[in-house]
C-alpha cells in the first residue's frame, strides 16, 4: 500500500510540475464559473451574473424549463465539449510522457531495482496517469454541483456521474497511449496514434449507426430500394461494421451515457426533445429527437465491451513492459 501511495504521490508531483495541468485546471474552473454565471429570475434567463438578460416565460426562476435547460447545458454541452473533448486531449498531452520518460536509460533502473513487481509498477503508474483527468473532472463537477444548487435550488448528486464516466473514457484512450508509449518509447507517436484511434472509434460508431438505420429502418422509408442479394450484401457489411464497433473502445457512446445518468429533480434526464416539446411549437420534432436520443446499446454493453478491449490492450502493454530490458 505504501508503495502504491508513493507512486501515486509521485504521479501527482509530476502533474503539478506540468504547466498544462494548471492551465487546464484554470480553464476548467473558468468554464464552470461561466456556467455558474448563467441564472434565472422572474422574467427569464440572466447571463454574466445578471449583467445581461433575456426574457422568457418558459425559463423563469423555479420553472421546469429552467431546470431542464440548465441541466442540459451541463450534460450535453459542457461535458460533451469541455470534459470529454478538450480535457481529454489536454490529458493525453500531459500524460503522454509518463511511460516513455520512465523508460529512459538511467531513469527506470532505480525503480526497477526495488522490491516491487513490474506488473504492480505498471498498474500503479497507469492509475497515477488517470489522476490528471480525475482531478480536473472533480473540480469541475464540484463547481457545477454548487452552481445547480444556487441557480435551480436543488442538490443534484447525479452530476457526479461525470467523474466515473469521463474517467472511464479517458482510461480507454490512456491504455492505448500507454501501449504505444511502451512499444515505441516516443511521446509524440503515442499521442498521435491515440488521437488517431479516437478518431477511428468515432468513425466506426458513426458507420455502425448509419448502416444500422440503412439496413433496419425499412418502415420509415429510409432504406433504398434493394433486391434481396444487395440486401444480403449490405447485411454482411453491417455485420462486419458491427463487429468492428464491438471491438472498438466506444468513446463517444460512453460519454453520451451521461445524458442518461444526469437526471433532474423529477427523476427524468434532460432531453433536447423535452425542451422542444415544452416550448409547444413542434411536438413531432421533439418526439423524434427524444426517440433518437434513446441509445440502442445498453450501458453494460457499451462499457463492458470497451473495458474488455481496454483490459486486453493493458494486458499486452503490461506484458511487454514486464518483459522488457531497461
Amino acid at each position: 500500500m505504501n508503495v502504491f501511495l508513493a507512486i501515486l504521490g509521485e504521479s501527482l508531483r509530476l502533474l503539478r510540475a506540468r504547466w498544462l495541468f494548471w492551465v487546464t485546471l484554470c480553464i476548467s474552473a473558468l468554464v464552470a464559473l461561466i456556467y455558474l454565471s448563467v441564472g434565472f429570475d422572474e422574467q427569464g434567463v440572466t447571463f454574466a451574473f445578471g449583467a445581461s438578460h433575456i426574457k422568457s416565460e418558459l425559463l423563469v426562476k423555479g420553472s421546469p424549463g429552467a431546470e431542464l435547460l440548465y441541466t442540459m447545458i451541463f450534460s450535453k454541452y459542457l461535458v460533451g465539449i469541455w470534459l470529454t473533448l478538450a480535457t481529454l486531449i489536454l490529458g493525453l498531452i500531459s500524460c503522454g510522457p509518463i511511460f516513455p520518460e520512465f523508460m529512459l536509460e538511467g531513469s527506470a533502473g532505480v525503480t526497477l531495482s526495488k522490491p516491487i513487481s513490474r506488473w504492480a509498477l505498471f498498474i500503479y503508474k497507469f492509475v497515477g496517469g488517470l489522476l490528471f483527468v480525475a482531478i480536473q473532472t472533480l473540480l469541475f463537477t464540484v463547481i457545477i454541483f454548487i452552481a445547480i444548487r444556487w441557480r435551480i435550488g436543488i442538490w443534484n448528486y447525479s452530476v457526479f456521474w461525470s467523474i466515473p464516466i469521463v474517467l472511464t473514457v479517458f482510461s480507454y484512450l490512456f491504455s492505448v497511449q500507454v501501449l504505444i508509449g511502451v512499444l515505441t518509447r516516443s511521446v509524440m507517436v503515442s499521442i498521435l496514434v491515440t488521437i488517431l484511434l479516437w478518431f477511428m472509434s468515432w468513425i466506426v460508431t458513426l458507420s455502425e449507426d448509419t448502416m444500422y438505420h440503412f439496413v433496419h429502418d425499412k418502415d420509415n422509408g429510409s432504406q433504398l430500394a434493394m433486391d434481396p442479394s444487395q440486401e444480403n450484401q449490405w447485411q454482411k457489411w453491417y455485420q462486419m461494421v458491427k463487429f468492428m464497433h464491438m471491438i472498438t473502445p466506444k468513446v463517444s457512446q460512453t460519454s453520451a451515457l451521461l445524458n442518461q445518468k444526469v437526471v433532474m429533480s423529477n427523476g427524468r434526464n434532460s432531453s433536447l426533445g423535452d425542451y422542444i416539446k415544452m416550448n409547444g411549437k413542434n411536438s413531432e420534432l421533439g418526439d423524434a429527437i427524444k426517440e433518437a436520443e434513446v441509445p440502442r446499446f445498453s450501458m453494460e454493453y457499451i462499457i463492458g465491451t470497451s473495458l474488455g478491449i481496454e483490459l486486453l490492450i493493458l494486458a499486452f502493454a503490461g506484458w511487454k513492459f514486464s518483459r522488457r530490458d531497461f
Partner: peptide, 17 residues
C-alpha cells in the same frame, strides 16, 4: 532487493522532485 541499493550509470531522476 529490500537489502540492496543501486546507483545507475547516468542516473536520471525526475526533474520536478
Amino acid at each position: 532487493l529490500r537489502r540492496v541499493g543501486y546507483l545507475p550509470e547516468q542516473a536520471r531522476f525526475p526533474e520536478y522532485l
